[in-house]
């Protein structure tokens, strides 16, 4: 599988179609993102994030691609390694007008193994097009239903206990592939008191949740990154459900169209202002 990806990328590099390939490399057992520019580099250290099995180490490739596109001096085209989640993130970034010319990114898709899909209860463990791997069945995550089954008081106790562990490392925000703002509300003292641990409850986490509306593509990186093991995904997943109910908008889908929260005016036809 990894050989197929390597050959495909080598072809892209040799043809001059891409100036570099944003992938992962294994450097003495440590997997990190890396911009491959020469074919030989692929031979020596290319990785699919496998320290134990495929994808044990995941990175927000879409966010890294965004930084690459925004910060490189020329307008070269780059190849990017994408899983299903990375593709959804890139789609969402496009919808938020973050990628400029989307043709500058050439996606090199890989389908995830069943084990990886199950581990992250992934809703679509493969990109639309992929060069290696096999399509496995989408998995479901029931964490939202579990919280909805509780009454209001139990929900509040549940979330308060979870957020009470927060050490405000901003890991959830930093790893998030669709968190692209230059200035972050979470660091504004006027809006959320800074300097307290755990951060102001529930303002800190609900603020982040509101900002995930129409953006979160359910990649599970936030929950995976959280050192306090807070089930952040459950909260953002519920936010995504609300947006789907209200605006019939599914995040991360391929194609044109804006996120409903990225439209000024009355375009979505929603009149809930006084709800």
């Amino acid at each position: 599988m990894i050989e197929q990806v390597k050959e495909h990328v080598k072809g892209l590099l040799a043809s001059g179609k891409i100036a570099g390939f944003l992938g992962l490399r294994n450097d003495a057992g440590v997997v990190t993102p890396f911009l491959f520019k020469q074919e030989e580099q692929l031979d020596s250290s290319f990785s699919l994030g496998e320290t134990e099995s495929q994808g044990t180490m995941r990175y927000p490739m879409a966010k890294l691609a965004l930084h690459l596109i925004q910060n490189c001096d020329d307008d070269s085209t780059y190849g990017v390694l994408v899983r299903g989640c990375d593709e959804r993130a890139l789609n969402e970034l496009k919808r938020w007008n973050q990628l400029g010319n989307p043709d500058r990114i050439v996606q090199v898709g890989v389908a995830c193994t069943l084990g990886l899909a199950e581990e992250h209860e992934c809703r679509k463990p493969f990109p639309d097009e992929f060069v290696a791997g096999e399509k496995v069945d989408p998995q479901t995550n029931n964490s939202v239903q579990q919280v909805l089954a509780k009454d209001l008081d139990s929900r509040l106790a549940f979330w308060s206990a979870e957020f009470d562990r927060c050490i405000k490392c901003y890991g959830c925000r930093n790893i998030c592939p669709v968190c692209f703002c230059n200035v972050c509300t979470l660091e504004e003292d006027a809006l959320i008191k800074t300097g307290n641990i755990p951060p102001e409850n529930p303002m800190f986490h609900l603020t982040r949740a509101v900002h995930m509306a129409g953006r979160c593509i359910d990649c599970n990186l936030c929950t995976e990154a959280c050192p306090a093991e807070i089930p952040l995904r459950t909260l953002y997943k519920r936010v995504a459900e609300i947006i789907a109910d209200e605006f019939s908008y599914v995040t991360g889908a391929t194609g044109e169209g804006k996120s409903p929260l990225n439209i000024l005016g009355s375009d979505p036809g929603h009149t809930a202002a006084n709800d």
């Binding site: 209001l152 549940f158 949740a209 909260l235 519920r238």
Partner: peptide, 11 residues
């Protein structure tokens, strides 16, 4: 917003 705070456990 209302649905979000309801999920969080606030009336």
């Amino acid at each position: 917003m209302k649905k979000l705070i309801e999920f969080y456990g606030i009336d």
